[in-house]
C-alpha cells in the first residue's frame, strides 16, 4: 500500500499499541476481556512449554547415567509452594486457553454468533448476545472448577496435609 501523505513525521500515527489497543480495558465488552485473556494465557503457556521441555530433558542424563537422583533432585527442588503456585497459574491458563479456543473455533465456524438481523434502535449487535457469550461464561466457570481441582492436587494434598 502506498504511504498516505499524512505519514510524515509531522503527523502522529496515533496507533494505540499493545497497552492502549490489545490491553485496552476501559469500556471493554465481555468478548474483549476474553480476547485479552486468550492472548495473555497463550503467551504464558507457550513460554512455559519451552521451560518445560528444558526441565523434563533432565531425565535423559538421569537415564543414561543410571543415576535417578539427577531427576529426583530436580523434582525435589521444584516441590515448593512457589513452584506449585506457578503450576497452578499454568494449569488455569491452559484450561482457559483451551476452552476459549473451542469458543473461537465455533465462532469461526459460524456457530453461536447468531443470524443476521435488521438493526433497530436501541442497537444490540447479534454476535455479542448470542450463544457464544453464554459459552464464554460457561467456560470461565469450568476453568474455575478445574482450577479448584488443580489447587487441591497442588496444595491440599502436598503442603496442607
Amino acid at each position: 500500500m502506498s504511504a498516505p501523505a499524512s505519514s510524515g513525521s509531522k503527523f502522529p500515527r496515533n496507533m494505540r499499541g499493545v497497552l492502549g489497543g490489545w490491553a485496552r480495558v476501559s469500556h471493554a465488552n465481555f468478548e474483549r476481556w476474553l480476547y485479552l485473556m486468550h492472548r495473555l494465557t497463550g503467551l504464558v503457556v507457550g513460554l512455559y512449554l519451552i521451560a518445560h521441555l528444558a526441565e523434563t530433558s533432565d531425565i535423559v542424563p538421569a537415564y543414561l547415567s543410571g543415576d535417578e537422583n539427577i531427576w529426583n533432585n530436580l523434582m525435589q527442588s521444584l516441590y515448593t509452594p512457589e513452584a506449585h503456585a506457578g503450576l497452578l497459574i499454568i494449569a488455569a491458563f491452559a484450561v482457559y486457553h483451551g476452552l476459549n479456543g473451542v469458543r473461537l473455533f465455533l465462532a469461526a465456524s459460524g456457530v453461536g454468533v447468531g443470524r443476521p438481523i435488521r438493526p433497530e434502535w436501541p442497537y444490540a449487535p447479534v454476535s455479542l448476545r448470542s450463544f457464544q457469550r453464554s459459552l464464554g461464561w460457561l467456560f470461565i466457570a469450568v476453568t474455575l472448577i478445574l482450577t479448584a481441582y488443580a489447587f487441591y492436587e497442588l496444595f491440599v494434598v502436598t503442603h496442607f496435609v
Partner: peptide, 13 residues
C-alpha cells in the same frame, strides 16, 4: 497416590 507421587523417577520412566 495422586500428584505427590506422579513425578518420581520410577513412575515417570
Amino acid at each position: 497416590g495422586g500428584y505427590p507421587n506422579a513425578l518420581s523417577y520410577a513412575n515417570v520412566v
